[in-house]
Design a binder for these strands. Structure first.
Lengths: 251, 251
DNA sequence: TCAAAAGTGTTCGTAGTACACCCATGT
DNA sequence: ACATGGGTGTACTACGAACACTTTTGA
């Protein structure tokens, strides 16, 4: 009996979100893989789970170790688990996917397993979302899970993320969109406090609309119950200084 | 490096829901374990994932093989993944938890690994939910995840489900409640079609209220967009025959 | 014909939307 | 002072809640 049991590798995949205050753009962290499979491909940051370590702990270790981030506090939550046999080439590995919302866009430093590590700008397209930096560009998919894994190419390509990371990213975007109106943890990428304008910027991106299309007055009325007032204003731009808010602690 | 990597057993845990048309009660399937750990304890049905098998497939196999169910079609969806080190005694095992909604309450037959297998009636309490049959009774918990795993006893007890199954069940109930208003897959336990009264029975249980407290007229107006009309009436009780509905296919 | 359950319609209150107007700051 | 953006307030609309009323069956 025991020999037919699967003991696959357990991969922790972490989708790390942040916000560039200068460009007012959402950022996602990608890593250029140093080892096969998918050597030299861009991918979501991953690590293997170790003995005597919970998956949650592994997700945190991944951030500190592999990317060189040393922030005191950040929020990590489970996204989903991906188990399709064809999601990896070679040895089978499950992916326990997590999302992390970093309150600041810290400088990066490629750690073990990474040739390079970069922030990619997250922008909406008509039907999908896009990650881009100076050189590369990746999009989310619009197919179903079944179709996606059916057509998943086994050969690395510069145009595609490694493994099934395009699909994982697609699921992540969908999840964030779904939660915007009742548990917008994504706003944690704005730091400990934020203005309504900054919040609307995030909402606009995931809803594929523009900042100005979200009325500030109405946004306040419909979402204030999710926020707490956090002191008064900070001044960065022209116009009346905005009030600051922070996320209400969950339940 | 390789020796510090964890290759835990992968447990598939399946929370199987059904509906007793005679008593109009929601049912959850529990198994009396035939082997240690937690031998003789009631537990959620589980199996180990095998080679060349996706987790989804393992969840389906679990139903057919271990419980003796041979239905042609049923819906299974991922619930969450449980990775706490203390969730098992002895060797470490992750749990990939799934939920299955059976369209009928088929007769059961204990398969491999089970001394007994029973439907337990699902009923709401003031602050929690309860599973009960003639002899035993289990409740969901109201503590947080951290508190729960901190206090998780390592010794089997007749009063408690095996492993962290109490917690998994709690998460399952919460998920179903959250989805009632936009993706009420739980209604699949009513069979291919259902009356509004039957649907309200399900809603009432998860919302800890009574059937009569949910106004039929208002319920129809607010939830009809999730349903399609499915032919006309069936006749079972006194009063005007009800129309039948079925769940709208997702997206 | 009466009770039980399903279905229809009406009123009312609340919550979201559109938009006008006022406030505070930098240039 | 004026442009820019933030904040407040108001009218309008839509949707859910409460509840009265009608319809269809079984006893």
């Amino acid at each position: 009996m025991a020999n037919i049991l699967e003991r696959p590798l357990i991969t922790i995949t972490n989708i790390i979100w942040s916000f560039n205050q200068a460009t007012q753009q959402i950022q996602v962290l990608l890593v250029k893989r140093a080892h096969d499979p998918f050597k030299n491909n861009w991918a979501l940051p991953e690590t293997f789970m170790r003995a005597n370590e919970s998956a949650d702990h592994a997700a945190l270790r991944l951030i500190k170790e592999k990317i060189g981030l040393t922030l005191a506090e950040f929020h990590t939550e489970q996204l989903a688990t991906f188990t399709n046999q064809h999601r990896t080439t070679g040895e089978r590995a499950l992916s326990l996917a997590y999302m992390t919302f970093l309150p600041e866009m810290t400088p990066l430093q490629a750690g073990y397993g990474a040739l390079d590590v970069r922030w990619f700008a997250f922008t909406p397209l008509e039907a999908a979302y896009q990650l881009s930096n100076q050189d590369c560009l990746f999009q989310t998919t619009t197919t179903t899970a079944d179709e996606y894994y059916q057509d998943l190419p086994q050969t690395p390509s510069d145009q595609q993320l490694a493994f099934d990371h395009q699909w994982i990213l697609t699921v992540a975007c969908q999840r964030i969109l779904n939660k915007l109106d009742y548990q917008p943890n994504i706003l944690m990428i704005l730091g400990p406090s934020f203005t309504l304008r900054e919040a609307r910027t995030i909402y606009a991106a995931f809803r594929k609309t523009s900042l100005t299309a979200i009325d500030n007055s109405n946004f306040k009325k419909t979402h204030q119950h999710l926020f707490l007032e956090a002191g008064t204003t900070s001044q960065l731009r022209v116009g009346r200084p905005a009030r600051l808010y922070r996320l209400k602690p969950q339940n």
